[in-house]
């Protein structure tokens, strides 16, 4: 067999492995809604989340390369680790309530779903409140977005994260409205899962931000 033939064969093998990954089981065409068996919307959300990781990676890189260029007393020193730690626990708790909400609708408990979603949205709002407290502290100490590089990078990075939290809250409110109007049931709850994926991703970003801003 020629070298090219071998290469083709090897390529074919890798290709079939990839194919196996793409559709772990060959579904029957007449029953399959989609080729991979995965829902369009869920696939979309995951690819979108992958894209968002680069967005936050770029913002974090910006923060990290300018880190230390501003003397601590002009910025970093005015951050309160206590507020940030409480905020972290709040956001982690909201992730828990979100995943429990999904679990409840999976076993058909709609009332519990709505309650947990409301709790999640409230925790999210609480987080934003904590962030507002922090911003206020910085601004009264004369650190705002145009004061120095710390202000610029900090407000941009946490601001975009906060905006994501706010969008997540809106999303959850829409889920609550939809659930109240009967649009979500035990066998039709993909919307909750999608909102949850986004919410957990925002939580995940905060886990990393907390470390690089407050801890390191």
């Amino acid at each position: 067999m020629s070298a090219v033939g071998k290469l083709e064969k090897a390529g074919d093998r890798v290709g079939s492995h990839m194919e196996q990954v793409v559709s772990e089981a060959q579904v029957q065409p007449e029953h399959a809604e989609t080729t991979t068996g995965l829902d369009h919307r869920k696939l979309l959300i995951w690819v979108f989340i992958a894209s968002e990781t680069i967005f936050f990676a770029s913002l974090m890189a910006t923060y990290l390369v300018f880190r230390g260029k501003t003397p601590p007393q002009d910025g970093l020193a005015h951050l309160d680790l206590n507020v940030a730690s409480i905020n972290t626990f709040i956001l982690l708790a909201s992730s828990l309530t979100m995943v429990l909400a999904l679990q409840s609708i999976e076993s058909g408990k709609k009332g519990r779903l709505i309650g947990l979603l409301i709790l999640t949205a409230l925790l999210g709002a609480l987080f934003l409140g904590g962030q507002a407290l922090e911003y206020n502290e910085l601004i009264t100490n004369g650190v705002s977005i145009d004061t120095n590089l710390f202000g610029a990078t900090f407000f941009t990075l946490t601001g975009f994260h906060g905006a994501h939290v706010a969008i997540g809250i809106l999303w959850i409110i829409m889920l609550i409205i939809r659930a109240l109007r009967g649009g979500i049931s035990q066998h039709n709850h993909l919307a909750v899962e999608l909102g949850g994926l986004y919410w957990h991703f925002v939580d995940l970003v905060w886990v990393v931000l907390f470390t690089i801003i407050y801890l390191i």
Partner: peptide
């Protein structure tokens, strides 16, 4: 995003 989902899923 649309292309990726379309090509993988349809």
């Amino acid at each position: 995003l649309n292309f990726v989902v379309t090509i993988l899923n349809m």
